[in-house]
């Protein structure tokens, strides 16, 4: 689904991401691990162009993402952040529905425009125009969908609360559901549990695990090595801006090749 070719990103002299190539296929769950500062965040943020990379290419379903409408591309590539980034001024329900409502309203606008162009050519479009959902219908449907998602994570009673009234674990689960409401093709996670108190890490990991069972394509930057080992279909180990090792979890954890990976695993063995 996504092909990354020789991706490079500099900060001045520093190669934060240095000539990284990787493919992300449908249904894959890729864990990205590595020491702090190795370029994991920069790498994953380049994938949805939150960072503008300066070398290489990223193809989405065969097209260079720089040729795509960036907003439409991002509608299909969800992102979950370390610090949740829920919209502080909106209720939980509005956090979830804001983007999908906007997406669908825009789609209706485009369709209407297309239909009107047909009308100019004398084609009768009244029937099709009638079948387009109204703004009210869109809002209602998205709210229902959001409530269903909230019910699924046991937070339906928080629909009208504000982010500041939720615990860290609850916020992150809402952030995941907010990304899901867009019905994305792929989800990117940048250390989704690193900002959480230990007792809340599990609730977030188990939600990601549930998504994994639905064959959601995901790229997860994480320090939870045990989780990576159990859930990922593939693991990338990054060091100094490069992907040093790219293998199945079994091979990567039990039979590490690169000395830097061996060192990293030895240092973090208490997390396994």
């Amino acid at each position: 689904m996504i092909e990354i070719k020789n991706l490079t990103k500099h900060y001045g002299e520093l190669h934060a991401v240095n000539d990284v190539s990787a493919n992300i296929d449908d249904g894959e769950i890729i864990a990205v691990i590595g020491p702090s500062g190795s370029g994991k965040s920069t790498f994953i943020r380049c994938i949805n162009m939150l960072e503008n990379y300066d070398g290489g290419q990223i193809l989405y379903k065969g097209t260079d993402i720089k040729q795509l409408d960036i907003n439409k591309y991002r509608q299909e590539v969800g992102m979950v952040f370390q610090h949740f980034n829920l919209f502080n001024n909106l209720t939980i329900l509005d956090n979830i529905t804001l983007a999908p409502i906007d997406k669908r309203k825009q789609k209706v606008k485009e369709l209407t425009k297309q239909l009107k162009a047909q009308k100019k050519q004398g084609i009768d479009i009244s029937e099709q125009l009638k079948n387009l959902p109204t703004k009210k219908q869109i809002v209602q449907e998205e709210q229902e969908n959001a409530l269903q998602l909230l019910t699924r994570i046991g937070l339906a009673d928080k629909a009208n609360s504000y982010p500041s009234q939720l615990s860290g674990g609850q916020k992150q689960r809402v952030a995941i559901v907010r990304a899901l409401a867009m019905k994305p093709e792929i989800l990117l996670f940048d250390e989704p549990t690193s900002a959480l108190d230990i007792e809340m890490v599990q609730e977030v990991l188990s939600l990601i695990k549930q998504l994994a069972e639905t064959k959601m394509t995901m790229v997860i930057v994480t320090h939870e090595l045990k989780f990576a080992k159990n859930v990922a279909t593939r693991v990338l180990f990054m060091d100094g801006g490069k992907v040093v090792e790219d293998n199945t979890p079994d091979q990567l954890f039990n039979n590490p090749q690169h000395p830097r990976l061996k060192e990293f695993l030895a240092k973090t063995s208490d997390l396994m």
């Binding site: 949805n48 939150l50 907003n71 439409k72 591309y73 991002r74 509608q75 299909e76 969800g78 992102m79 952040f81 610090h83 980034n85 829920l86 919209f87 502080n88 001024n89 909106l90 804001l98 983007a99 906007d102 997406k103 952030a175 907010r178 990304a179 867009m182």
Partner: peptide, 23 residues
């Protein structure tokens, strides 16, 4: 305003003006 607010909006496919106005 935390930079993450704009990033979250953009990452959901909202345009810059839309994220400005709404968030």
């Amino acid at each position: 305003v935390d930079k993450g607010q704009m990033e979250a909006g953009r990452s959901l496919g909202l345009s810059f003006p839309k994220t400005m106005v709404k968030v």
